[in-house]
Design a protein around this nucleic acid. Structure first.
Length: 762
DNA sequence: TGGCCGAACCTGGTG
DNA sequence: GGTTCGGCCA
């Protein structure tokens, strides 16, 4: 690979705004480069300038590969490149998530692995239902081994590049042995369905490169400059794929920050960044330590938090930015109160200081927290967008519609066929479907082909045969039109023809109407995408949708406040940030109490959250909160106390509801605590204080009386009605949240909430 | 065979 | 709180 000669030895004018380290990171384009980039140190800027710099040297945009973790980060990068070099060049750069870029390549190379180029991509839910079906057919108890845990075991294995053969060979305990059985069958079924799950996209990319030296050579030559963002979060498979692609020229630039490593649970291997120097001994290391994003206060808070982690590389982040406001901690009675407090602050800011809605972000630990927040936002009349929330795509009607479209593109996708065959009901019941599945298996054909042969398959009722044949004829008719009709028209006509829309219309309930509307939204989204990109096929659209989690991308930043999980917030920044649910057991999550590594990861996640804020940071917690539809009492998170108290100010949320007596909580700074609004009522009753509240929230909180804790101690032998006999290893938590770690003879180690587990002492 | 109802699970996060 | 799954009945 020969570089196009540099025309002049002077740097382009756009480099002038960079500091010396950033400049070095931008112009060191040949050979391996490791950029250690602290939070807010202009990492995205460096990456985009680097690409712009390469382009300014005459490098072909198609030969630049930039890999990110989230769609959001990829989109951000593309936008910035576009604003520097123009849309037409920017879109030629291969910038995207690992999954989207690799899926794009696999579409081209699928045949070398025995897939067709219209393979389906299964999301977590799809793969879960395949696993469920497999467990049922293998007679593995769904009660004893939850499909979720089997799925995550398989996924973890894949992320560490362990195939079913090896997994089977290594399986020791019963859980692993059962997983091995499912894993083997799962692999087989996906292959038959011409489908890949998210993990397969990485693994198959590696397979293609490893098995076909000529294909490897093509892509090594094609991508002559490779950049990887968030390198600290790559797993073994991603690491290997990068190494294969960069193997020839070694023009590889990785950017990362060990303090922001938050995907250990998903197989991220911190060694990848720590040992980069070992993999590429001549690598140049650049450290970006000046923070341009946050105030001194916010940076100091982040620093005092992360210093509680034992395992970390030393880093000296500093900033020239002003000191800024104190960090405000808001205490609230409950989750609803918390949401309302946040809304009130946002409204005040918007009304009094003319702040724009797009300047706010609300971050939380778990997706479930968004519900209460959304409710408050709607009542307050504030426009919002949930980033990365999958709610739209998780809707049944959307999944059904997409399954129909997948079936249209990928005839072998038996999973999708089974999903939609009775949506709307067609008189082909589960029994008939099972028989056809058995028939398909015995004849080694896919389910769609079995449907086509329903008349010769055994024991299928006449009515079902007719329905099956009508259905396959209808699908085939549309398949024959695939090349003649534009993607959006094809999709609309096909979905009409399936009767899905009509059945919702006929039902005529509010809910059905809502569903009907959602399907229309999806269909018009296809049209929208088609208008943007004339060449888009239905397969392209399905792939895009499978790998993206947010349909309303255009609404992002369009004068709406943003809601997202802390994980999804990585790489983003906002002037004003709220971190909600700062409670023990929620953030850090309960599991971290037992596990030092887990706690450190949660702390890094908090670090990520804090450093998203530019000007002002709010932390809020609730004394009680609905979780699993039940009210749970909680204490403030220990993380709050890890921030230097000089950086904090305390406020009480809650407007209508009188504040409770806080002295009983474990908070140290009660003297600094000021109720934000006049009525501060002392209340020593352990029961919440409800007076003459008009607020509708009150009745839902009326009966709260935690059960007496069960006297379970470590060392005891106990019996669980599902898992059988086990030994208590550890007990922790109080009252409702009291939990135990029990090692069961049958399924190994389990963490149980005593309130639910109903353990018997034996 | 298909529809309805109650029980059981859930919620740790990303693509 | 919502969703999914299995059992029971028409």
């Amino acid at each position: 690979m020969k570089l196009i000669p540099v025309k002049e030895h002077q740097a382009p004018a756009f480099l002038e705004g960079l500091n010396p380290e950033q400049t070095e990171a931008v112009i060191t384009t040949n050979g391996p480069v490791l950029i250690i980039a602290g939070a807010g140190s202009g990492k995205t800027r460096v990456l985009t300038y680097r690409i712009a710099y390469l382009l300014s040297k005459g490098i072909n945009p198609y030969s630049i590969l930039a890999l990110t973790f989230t769609n959001k980060a990829a989109g951000e990068m593309k936008n910035r490149i576009a604003s520097m070099v123009g849309e037409s060049i920017a879109r030629k750069v291969w910038a995207g998530t690992f999954h989207s870029v690799f899926a794009r390549i696999l579409r081209i190379e699928a045949e070398s692995l025995g897939f067709t180029n219209s393979f389906s991509i299964y999301d977590t839910d799809d793969s879960l239902s395949v696993i469920r079906a497999i467990m049922n057919s293998l007679g593995i108890s769904i009660q004893q081994f939850t499909p979720q845990s089997i799925r995550s075991r398989i996924s973890n294995a894949k992320n560490q590049m362990i195939g079913w053969q090896q997994y089977e060979a290594d399986a020791q305990e019963i859980y692993e042995k059962q997983t091995a059985l499912v894993y083997k069958e799962y692999d087989k079924r996906l292959k038959i369905n011409n489908a890949m799950d998210f993990d397969d996209i990485l693994l198959n990319m590696i397979k293609v490169l490893q098995l076909n030296p000529n294909i490897k050579a093509i892509y090594q030559k094609k991508f002559s400059f490779i950049m990887v963002d968030e390198y600290q979060d790559t797993n073994r498979a991603q690491y290997l794929a990068i190494q294969l692609l960069a193997g020839g020229h070694k023009n590889i630039c990785v950017v990362g920050d060990d303090a922001q490593s938050i995907y250990r649970w998903r197989g991220a291997d911190i060694r990848n960044i720590l040992e980069f120097k070992k993999d590429y001994p001549d690598a140049v290391t650049v450290r970006l330590e000046q923070n341009y994003r946050s105030t001194k206060t916010i940076l100091a808070a982040a620093d005092s938090v992360i210093s509680h982690n034992k395992k970390q590389l030393s880093k000296a982040l500093w900033t020239d930015n002003p000191q800024g406001d104190l960090i405000t901690v808001i205490s609230n009675r409950d989750d609803r109160d918390e949401s309302d407090s946040i809304m009130r602050i946002i409204k005040e800011e918007v009304d009094l200081h003319f702040t724009s809605e797009k300047d706010f972000a609300i971050l939380y630990r778990t997706n479930a927290q968004s519900l209460t927040l959304e409710d408050s936002l709607r009542r307050a009349g504030i426009a919002y967008t949930i980033i990365g929330g999958t709610s739209f795509y998780k809707r049944k009607e959307i999944k059904d519609t997409l399954a129909y479209l997948r079936l249209l593109c990928n005839p072998k996708d038996s999973e999708s066929l089974a999903r939609v065959i009775n949506e709307p009901p067609r008189g082909i019941g589960p029994t008939s479907v099972k028989r056809l599945q058995a028939y398909a298996q015995s004849m080694s054909i896919d389910l769609f082909a079995a449907f086509e042969q329903a008349n010769i398959a055994p024991d299928i009722p006449k009515k079902a045969i007719k329905s099956a044949l009508d259905f396959t004829d209808m699908v085939k008719e549309f398949r024959s039109k695939m090349n003649d009709l534009p993607a959006d028209e094809l999709a609309t006509l096909f979905i009409e023809a399936t009767g899905l829309l009509q059945s919702l219309k006929d039902d005529n309930s509010d809910e059905s109407l809502d569903r009907w509307n959602n399907i229309q939204r999806l269909l018009s989204h296809i049209t929208e995408m088609k208008e943007k990109d004339e060449a888009m096929t239905l397969e392209d659209y399905l792939q895009y949708i499978a790998l993206i989690s947010d349909i309303d991308e255009t609404e992002f930043g369009n004068n709406r406040i943003s809601l997202m999980t802390l994980h999804a917030a990585k790489g983003l920044e906002f002037p004003i940030v709220f971190i909600a649910g700062m409670e023990k057991g929620l953030f850090p999550l309960g599991k971290a109490e037992f596990d030092q590594d887990e706690e450190e990861e949660e702390r890094r996640l908090f670090y990520v959250g804090i450093t998203r804020a530019e000007k002002k940071l709010y932390l809020s917690f609730a004394e009680k909160r609905y979780r699993f539809g039940e009210l749970v009492f909680s204490e403030p998170s220990k993380f709050i106390n890890e921030i230097n108290p000089d950086l904090l100010e305390w406020k009480a949320g809650g407007l209508k509801i009188p504040a409770q007596q806080y002295a009983s909580t474990s908070l140290k700074n009660t003297n600094q605590y000021r109720p934000a609004h006049s009525t501060f009522t002392k209340n020593t009753s352990p029961k919440p204080f409800f007076d003459d509240l008009a607020s509708s929230s009150s009745d839902s909180y009326s009966q709260i009386e935690p059960d007496a804790p069960i006297m379970i101690k470590s060392g005891m032998n106990v019996k669980h009605n599902q898992f059988g006999i086990g030994k208590v290893q550890m007990v922790s938590g109080e009252g409702e949240k009291k939990q135990a770690v029990v090692v069961f003879d049958s399924v190994g180690k389990k963490q149980l909430l005593l309130k639910y587990a109903k353990l018997e002492i034996v």
